[in-house]
Each structure stands twice: as structure tokens, then as C-alpha cells.
Simulated scan of single mutants.
Amino acid sequence: MKYQAKKKALILLADGTIFWGKAVGNLEGSSFGEVCFNTGMTGYQEIFTDPSYFGQLMVTTNAHIGNYGVKEGEEESDSVKIAGLICKNFSYTPSRDGATDSLENYLKNNDILAISDVDTRALVSYIREHGAMNAVISTEVDDIAALKEKLAQTPDMKGLELASKVSAKEPYFFGDENAPYKIAALDLGIKKNILRNLAKRGCYIKVFPYNSSFEDLKSFEPDGYFLSNGPGDPEPLESAIAVAREIIEKDLPLFGICLGHQIIALSQGVATFKMFNGHRGINHPVINHLTGKGEITSQNHGFAINREEVESNDDLEITHSHLNDNTVMGIRHKTKNCFSVQYHPEAGPGPNDATYLFDQFIENIKQSKQVIA
């Protein structure tokens, strides 16, 4: 048990507002990024390692973080991707039989600054009212003026290309090479559980770096194409947008998730926009317009696509909508073999309401192969 005195720390928001807390462990210094919050009660390890969170300071609304430690095999990438953690109560000693380490050690080994003892309810309420903004968490509490100066130089998420920071540097393979289907996946910040879901449905995946061309992906001779999730603003990803446009023009099976969904929309002339707060949690209600059924979904995005532009686009139709704010959660092309969703059907630890979307992708591939045959 660790009862040593905790070092004083703070959260300084871009508008000058300050919230106070204590440093977790013995890490010191400052970490900058866009502050956002996640409402999930579980799954903090998956959240922290999700490449889509790169460059963000994560506020967890659940009061207790770290209580079940971390477990090897539950991460969504090879390292922690958040810029920093802000929580209420931090548990230093995990109480879980399957834990392979404590969250404290995990964050320390990844050099991630975390602060606890924060009034997270007040902080989240403030973010909800004033919107997501840049912030800094720091133990350097004696020179707030210097922190403000550095914070002012932190680039805004709008217009920020981050896929290159988390994408694979070289192509790699995932799954059984003797599987019946081959998938070319464009890695914009892909989660491991997406690859697992494809592999267990008979897919052998070749994962390509974010700036790969259509010819690069085509060289694998895939049966289908996939555009992954990832961080940052989709608009600067001109190469990925061009790849999506060419895949669609050739009527090849294409599935996109999250950032991949936004890339597909941009390739068809539909604009994206930065949301006031974004959607981050594992309890977001979505309506499937094709079936009339509701789905509880896991979401993590700060950008969305323009509903009016989808509705006026003759080639696209909206397949899913968010029941809280009516943002577009899914689209499909009316005449081409392409669909995408804004949420995460591969969610770990859940919910699993939308895993059928992977089956739908496989069915689209089967139908495409029959047409070609």
C-alpha cells in the first residue's frame, strides 16, 4: 500500500480555468492536449491504448480508475496513446486475479502523466458547457504564467493530421494466411480488436500505412478493403480520401469505421465538422434506419459528417443516427459496395450490439466474388 504524500497538480484549460488535483505516482512535469471525457464504467485499458485518443487528455467520469489493474492482451495497440489521464480516485493496488500489472506501473512505463483527486464532475460539467478545448496537466504549479504561454502554442485539433503519428511504418499481416478472404486495411490508427473481429470471420489482413496508395493496397489482391479508425481531423488526409474514392469508383467491397467513415464521406463530397464535445463512451444509443432497431454503441470521435450534405447527395443514404443529437452514425452508397459507421462495432469490453456489421462486410465480399466469378 502506498500512502506517501501526493504532489500537487493542476489542469489548466485554454480559457484560463484551473482545476486542482494530485499527481499519480512519482511522475512529474506537464502534458498538453485536447481535454475530453469518456463515460465508460469499464475498459480504461482499452481506452488508454486506443490510437484514436492520441493527443488527448482523458477525463474518466467513473469515480474509480485502476481498481482492476491491467491485463496483457486487452490493449488496443502496442502502447498507451492518451496524452495524459485525469481522474477522481486512483487505485494503486489492483484487485483482480487476472491482472498482470498495476495501472500505476503501466502508465509509468509508458511515461504518461496522470493526476487524481480532481473534482471530475465539475470538470466534465464545465467541458460539456464550454466545449472540448486544449489544456495542460502539470505538477509545475508554481509557474502558471509559463504554462499558459506554452498552452497557447499547442495546435488546435481542428486541421490537425495525427494518423501519421500512430499508423504502422511498414505493412504487416494479421490472421491465418490460408483464410478464405483477404482484406487490405488502411491503418489510420487501427484497433487490434478490429483485426481480431475480421480474422475470426475468416479474413487474412494486410495492414498498410496511412499514406499507402490504392495501387499499394491492390497489390495484395484483396477481396475487400477496410478504412480504420484513428485520431485527428480527417480533412488533411488527402491520400486516404483519394484511396477511398478510387475503391468506390471501382465498386470494390469497402467498409469504414470512425475516421474511415469520415474519409469515405469526404471522398463523396460530404464535409466533416468538429463537434462541440464529441461522443466518447460505451453507452451511446443509435437507431438503425434499415431495421428499425436500436443499438447501444461504443463511440470515440470528435468529428462528424454533415447530415444535410448526405441527405442532398444522390449517391448516399443515412443508415444510422444518434438518438441523442441526431448526428449521422452510418451511411451506405446506393449503387456501390460501400458502407461505414461512426461508432465501434468491435468494442472491447463491449457493448456488442453492432458486431453484425462485420458479418455484413463479409456478406458483401461474398456477393462481390460471386459477381466476379
Rank of each mutant, 00 (worst) to 15 (best):
S30P: 01
E34R: 04
I11M: 06
L27V: 01
G29E: 05
N38Q: 01
G16S: 09
A9V: 13
G21Q: 06
G21R: 01
K22D: 14
T17S: 15
T17N: 13
C36Y: 02
L10T: 12
N38W: 01
E28K: 13
E28I: 11
F32Y: 15
S30T: 05
A9Q: 11
S30V: 14
V35T: 08
V24S: 09
A23W: 12
E34A: 04
E34I: 02
L10A: 10
L13N: 08
K7P: 10
T17Q: 15
S30I: 06
C36V: 11
F37W: 12
D15R: 07
N38D: 11
S31E: 12
F19H: 08
L12E: 06
A9Y: 07
A23T: 14
G29V: 02
N26Y: 03
V24T: 13
L10E: 09
V35D: 00
N38G: 03
G25F: 05
C36T: 12
A14G: 04
S31Q: 12
F37S: 04
E34Q: 11
L10D: 05
L12I: 12
T17A: 14
K7D: 14
W20Q: 14
W20H: 15
L10Q: 07
G16V: 03
F19I: 06
K22Y: 08
G29D: 04
L13R: 06
A23P: 09
E28S: 14
L12H: 10
L27P: 07
C36K: 05
E28Y: 05
L13I: 04
L27C: 00
T17E: 15
F19L: 12
A14I: 04
I11F: 06
E34D: 10
V24G: 08
G21L: 13
G25P: 02
V35F: 04
F19P: 09
K8V: 09
A9I: 10
L10I: 15
I18W: 07
L27H: 01
F32I: 00
K7R: 15
L27D: 02
E34C: 07
A14E: 15
S31A: 15
N26K: 14
G21C: 07
C36P: 00
V24H: 14
G16W: 11
K7G: 03
I11R: 04
E34W: 02
E34T: 10
N26E: 14
F37R: 00
V35M: 07
G25R: 06
F19R: 12
K7S: 13
F19W: 12
E28W: 05
A9K: 06
N38C: 13
S30D: 08
G29R: 03
C36M: 11
F32L: 05
K8L: 13
K7F: 01
F19A: 08
K7N: 14
K8Y: 03
F37G: 01
L10R: 12
I11V: 15
V35C: 07
S31G: 02
G29I: 02
E34S: 09
S31F: 01
C36Q: 05
S31I: 02
G33W: 00
A23Y: 08
G21S: 13
L12N: 07
